[in-house]
């Protein structure tokens, strides 16, 4: 009886998923990958209706939808400008039916001290280059 129930649930859920053309969504650079720059690409396979929206939430159960995005017909979207944190994405149609799995994106920016170090190394190098060019052109002028 228990096996029959499980089979029935699987059958019903597969019919349910087929009727909403369930799309498999993934993070372009690999599921659960870490973005160090706050931008990332999500892609999905299979046809999805124009009314479908990409939803973002901070929790796995999508209790509060924080952002909604219109999607394009390319089956892919690139988002940017995210701060540190863990974000969950899924596709949903206009009747609030889920039409994809959810994907987890972790954003963890480079430490600020590392970035500032690179910035000042760059600045120092730039000052060196400008000084060298100024000195060189002045010397050659005098020559």
């Amino acid at each position: 009886m228990r096996t029959f129930k499980i089979k029935l649930i699987l059958l019903v859920s597969s019919l349910f998923l087929c009727s909403f053309s369930f799309a498999e969504m993934k993070l372009k650079s690999g599921v659960d990958d870490v973005s160090k720059e706050g931008y990332f690409s999500l892609s999905w396979e299979g046809e999805v209706a124009e009314s479908v929206r990409l939803e973002m939430a901070s929790s796995e159960n999508f209790e509060a939808i924080e952002r909604k995005y219109m999607i394009n017909r390319d089956g892919k979207i690139t988002l940017s400008g995210y701060g540190d944190g863990t974000f969950y994405f899924r596709l949903r149609d206009s009747k609030s039916n889920e039409v994809s799995n959810f994907v987890v994106v972790n954003v963890e920016h480079w430490p600020l001290d590392k970035a500032v170090t690179f910035f000042f190394v760059g600045l120092t190098l730039f000052v060196c280059l400008i000084s060298t060019l100024l000195v060189c052109t002045r010397i050659k002028k005098t020559d």
Partner: peptide, 26 residues
């Protein structure tokens, strides 16, 4: 809109962007 949806793009202490500045100059 940028502040609400992509706040990091306005952040002057955006780490990867800070690294990028002089990198692009060179």
């Amino acid at each position: 809109a940028v502040e609400a949806k992509s706040p990091q793009l306005l952040n002057l202490l955006f780490p990867a962007a800070l690294m990028f500045l002089f990198n692009n100059i060179f």
